[in-house]
């Protein structure tokens, strides 16, 4: 068993805290706000208002659920276009009221289905990316479990992107990669290794800003530590004007894959 695949299994474990656990662990007074105001309320994405200490924040999370029943209700954390549109609605609301947006990412990918295609899954993700890049309020995104491709990035174009120690972030699932490369999904272990999908790999490449240690994961001391980190990061980001903030965010993503020396 490869090291990377061990991490993939950990990231996917049903015993791992989900986005809802993070929300209730870190924030107080969470009030969920439903619906995209266009078509439906996607249960795979939760969002709403909460407090971080004294500060009002908008929180959004891709939720997988714990029990089988709940996981089915939440499509195993695979959002429909409505989920991404709800997230965008809440982000625009946060911008209006100058609230920071904190997002929790945990998905194997955007929902794959006929309805999702009919309602523009690609367009929904594209619009989120475009709008997030110029959102005039601080944004922090944390990959807490699986960061599966475009469906994860749709909440990930943020000022700060963090990953939990055993989270993964990848352009394709190891199984998908293995079936394309070797026509054999069972070679996922090898694929996990070559995809460089761990938090450490992502940090080394400058793709994310910080790896969050999982010491005490799910316990109050863990939430306390995250609360402190978020408060500190928001203090930095809130000191910037909206222009400086969006410029820095643009530069952050603009710099990825720009170095052409080896070309």
């Amino acid at each position: 068993m490869s090291g990377a695949y061990e991490i993939v299994k950990t990231a996917r474990s049903t015993r791992r805290p989900t986005s809802m656990d993070f929300i209730s662990g870190i924030f107080s007074g969470f009030m969920e706000l439903h619906g995209d105001r266009r078509f439906a309320d996607d249960r795979a994405i939760v969002g709403g208002l909460a407090r971080l200490g004294e500060r009002a924040v908008t929180v959004i999370g891709i939720e997988k659920g714990h029990s089988t029943r709940e996981r089915m209700l939440r499509s195993f954390g695979a959002p429909q276009p409505e989920g991404y549109r709800k997230a965008l609605r809440l982000m625009k609301q946060a911008e209006k009221f100058r609230r920071p947006v904190i997002s929790f990412i945990d998905t194997s990918g955007a929902y794959c289905g006929i309805g999702a295609e009919e309602r523009g899954q690609g367009q929904a993700i594209a619009e989120n990316l475009m709008e997030m890049m110029t959102l005039r309020t601080p944004t922090i995104s944390i990959v807490v479990g699986e960061g599966g491709s475009g469906g994860a990035l749709a909440l990930g174009a943020a000022d700060r992107v963090w990953m939990l120690e055993n989270a993964i972030y990848s352009v394709i699932s190891p199984e998908g990669c293995a079936s394309i490369l070797w026509k054999d999904a069972s070679k996922a272990e090898t694929a996990a290794e070559v995809l460089k999908l761990t938090a450490r790999d992502s940090l080394r490449g400058g793709l994310i800003d910080e790896v969050i240690s999982e010491e005490g994961l799910g316990e109050e001391r863990f939430w306390h530590r995250l609360r402190g980190k978020l408060t500190e990061a928001l203090r930095e980001l809130e000191a910037m004007s909206p222009e400086t903030l969006t410029e820095a965010r643009y530069r952050r993503f603009r710099a990825i894959g720009t170095d052409r020396k080896e070309g």
Partner: peptide, 9 residues
Amino acid sequence: GLYSLMQMA
């Protein structure tokens, strides 16, 4: 890998 994904953003 992830470098490709980030080109979307």
